[in-house]
Each structure stands twice: as structure tokens, then as C-alpha cells.
Amino acid sequence: MADPQVEQNEDRRLVAAARSGDTAAFEELVRSHQHEVYGLAIRLTGNRELAADVAQEALVRAWKALPNFRGDSAFSTWLYRITVNVAWTRKRQAARRSARSLDEIGDIVEADSIGPEQAGEAADLRGRIRRALDQLPAGQRTLVVLKDVEGWTHGEIADTLGISVSAAKVRLHRAHMKLRTLLKEHR
């Protein structure tokens, strides 16, 4: 596994080059972060097609916003924040537009990501939690994914979503209780 400090230094070097117009440096950044961005987008949206759109838009936005990136946080953190914002907006738009039900979307993710060899209790629980996540409102899903799946702090979540830390905690608490109820329904 690569040393995170080395990776951050490499990112810093590439960001500086990309900011001065080096497109090859930006391409290198896209190549090295594309899988994490896409993975996060999939967990936030629960849909591979939508996640690909989200990842693409987030990376495009990153290039456009690069001149404003001050380097206060790691490039990856900044990029993931952009991804969260794009995912949140897209998910809400998709929920309004799409004729597909959230249940259907959940089934697609399930079929895509669970192979026969993964059958078992843990896989079953993961399947149920995914379906339950799909039924959470977009805002609650975002909170649960960022906190419990991605391991962000309340502060990072509050900062990214533009809410207070206490609001993040209260909403997360509600989301946990709702998720538990949904999980029981999926037994």
C-alpha cells in the first residue's frame, strides 16, 4: 500500500503543475483518483450509471475550480467534497425525474455487486443495508455514507454540506433510527 504522505506530496506537485496549465498533470490526478471518486459516488447514489455521471462531473468541476483550490486540505479531500455536492444534487434531480423506483435501483446495485460466492450472512446483511440505504431520503443517506461508510468526522460533514455540527449529529441520529427500522422491514 502506498504511503499516504508520499501520495499527498505527489498530489501537491501535480496540483501545482495543473494550476499552471499542465494538462498532463491534471490527467495524472484524474487517473490516480478516479476509482475513489467513482466508489464514493456509487455509495452515495446507489446506482452505477448515475455514479459514473457524478464522477465525470465532479472531475470536470475540479479542473474548473482548480484555480480556487488553496491547498488548505488535501487535494483528495477537496475532490471528495466536490463529489458529495454533485452526488447530492444529481440524486435529488434523478429522484424527481426518474421513472425508476428506488427499489429497482437497489436491485440493480445488488445484482451488479454481489456474486454467488459472496452468499452468506455478511453478504445478506450488506444487501439488506444497501436496500435500506436506498430508501433513506437523499440527505440522510449522504450523512450515513459519509460518517459510517467513509469515516468522515461530524465537522467535515457539516463543513461540506454547509450545516452546523449539531445539525449533522441530530440528522445522523434520525437517519440511524430510520435505517434500523428499514433494516427490520427487509428481513
Binding site: Q34, H35, R43
Partner: peptide, 20 residues
């Protein structure tokens, strides 16, 4: 729930080959 949510993070997802 906590364990299952954490395990979702370990399920790697490769970006589509056309993304870059």
C-alpha cells in the same frame, strides 16, 4: 448495521474505463 456499513467501504468499485 455499523459493521455492514463499514464493510461497504471495502467493496472496491473500478471506475468505467472511459472516464478519464
Amino acid at each position: 448495521m455499523q459493521t455492514a456499513l463499514r464493510s461497504l467501504h471495502d467493496e472496491g468499485a473500478d471506475a468505467p474505463p472511459w472516464l478519464v
